[in-house]
Design a protein around this nucleic acid. Sequence first.
DNA 1: ATAATCACCTGCTCGC
DNA 2: TGCGAGCAGGTGATTA
Length: 271
Amino acid sequence: MPELPEVETTRRGIEPHVCGQRIVRVTVRQPQLRWPVPADLDSLLQGQLIEQVQRRAKYLLLPFTHGTLIMHLGMSGSLRIVEAQHPLAKHDHVDIELSSGRVLRLHDPRRFGAMLWHPAGDAMHPLLAELGPEPLDDEFDGAYLFARSRGRSAPVKAFLMDGHIVVGVGNIYANEALFSAGIRPDRAAGKVSRARFDALADEVKRVLARSIEQGGTTLRDFVGGDGNPGYFKQQLLVYGRGGQPCHQCGRVLDEIRLGQRSTVFCRHCQR
DNA sequence: ATAATCACCTGCTCGC
DNA sequence: TGCGAGCAGGTGATTA
């Protein structure tokens, strides 16, 4: 479910409901997520005041004076604010009860998500330490992509989805940005020109910003923190459209697999 | 260092 | 209608 726009939509959705709240209790029903949820999470968080909800890449962070709660939604996770009496659903793994009486609830069928604790004072958490720049920051641009890609033979799509290069570009938006920039996803990253990387960086920013504005892409049952669906899916140009006509030239879109991820492109419009 | 593959897990769709 | 195969938004770990 969540790509960066969905995570940012979640952050914005829950922020007004959790900021200024104290944590009353944490209940972990299923600790087996991508990594085990710490057994002492309740004692670590009980009574703590939530002051802000941060996002780094696709991680959501709740910073406290004694440490940071790190959350990731994986492939199928969602984080919602519900009323205390809201019925429990299958795969509702963690509840963070707030002083308002409401609950921040983590739901994640596939359990690729994570909820981790990182004590203050230590070095940056290993999961966050090696990450590339945020795609919407100014330091992410064509010059940066060009410099980092020299000599690399991996497909430009894999390069773009590598979190060490830039964070937050998942399969949907990689497909979309490469189409809009006119670059074949299977071209070696090291053979893409500076001018084309300029276009690619611009398209990455544009497609992500536009999707965030519209509340993320609705796939299956994604809902943001406030429970409302996103509205971006209808605007996808290539993702999920293999075999259908290209919106630009009308030819049939190709669908291949690149790094075991579904990859859709137009061999006429993308070179 | 880089590239490619595997792994984690549930649910859904497809073809037989 | 049932059943196995394959695939799904992510990404760390492992292997060459």
